[in-house]
């Protein structure tokens, strides 16, 4: 799910020739938050001026910096196509996937600066890498798997189109943590399960085949559950899969309030 591009501690200076600058490239300034836990007391910003095509992804800029300027830059990425959810980062102050934002989405003739920071609310490890374990702990706490009791049916679990539609939106989650780490409540109260865990719970609570909805609702009605949500809609705005995260959280809240799924 997550692959780490991590380099050795010693600064690696690129010595070979830089790749040719393609036609149509513009010079952009990338302000990057850097942090080396073995050398730095606190994170700091560093700027890199590099060529970029308008059609480049932000991930390409990070690759350029890592491959040709400073090999010690550490960040996560795996598929680079918006599927694996490894490269969540704060781009110009908002949580996005580095592989889904293009240079032309951010750079105009007047503004050629791009700011990239790690996602907030999770312990910072190095540069753009944060410790995702608290995020996965919250995810695991809501039983994000199908629970059934009794005998299995002879063939498949039958489900109507309408029943499947009920939780279709929340099946799209790729667990990139964009939503959870965009939540002001999550930044301040580290026990809050966060939007992603509630999305995972929603996916099974409203699944007609699942039989553990009550258990999950019980977990989420806890003090650190859905009631911590203040409907700031940062999560909905941040989700790279377009999941209506706040809507899902509100549906769980209403299911709890009216005891109706």
């Amino acid at each position: 799910m997550t692959a780490t591009l991590n380099a050795d501690l010693a600064p690696v200076q690129h010595t070979g020739p830089l790749p040719p600058v393609p036609d149509g490239a513009v010079m952009v300034t990338v302000n990057l938050q850097r942090f080396n836990p073995e050398l730095d007391d606190a994170p700091h910003m560093e700027s890199y001026r590099i060529p970029a095509l308008p059609t480049d992804r932000i991930l390409n800029l990070l690759h350029y910096i890592k491959w040709y300027i400073d090999g010690t830059l550490a960040f996560r990425r795996s598929c680079a196509h918006g599927i694996c959810g490894s490269d969540a980062m704060r781009i110009n102050g908002r949580n996005r996937l580095g592989c889904k934002v293009l240079v032309k989405d951010l750079v105009t003739a007047k503004k050629t600066e791009i700011t990239i920071e790690p996602i907030k609310g999770l312990p910072l490890e190095k540069d753009l890498i944060v410790d995702m374990e608290p995020f996965f702990d919250a995810f695991r706490s809501v039983k994000p798997y199908l629970v059934t009791h009794g005998n299995e049916p002879d063939r498949e679990w039958v489900q109507s189109i309408e029943d499947r539609e009920r939780f279709d939106d929340t099946t799209k989650c790729i667990m990139c943590a964009c939503c959870t780490t965009s939540c002001p409540v999550y930044w301040s109260a580290d026990a809050y399960v966060g939007p992603a865990a509630i999305v995972a719970a929603h996916r099974f609570i409203f699944d007609s085949r699942d039989q553990a909805a009550e258990e999950r609702l019980e977990i989420l009605s806890d003090a650190e559950g859905v009631w911590r949500c203040r409907t700031t809609f940062n999560c909905t705005d941040a989700c790279p899969r377009g999941i209506q995260v706040t809507k899902a959280i509100q549906e769980v809240k209403r299911a709890l309030m009216f005891r109706r799924i």
Binding site: Q33, N95, K120, S182, F233, D237
Partner: peptide, 8 residues
Amino acid sequence: SLYRGAEG
């Protein structure tokens, strides 16, 4: 390092 949230 402020988060630039939207209207919400």
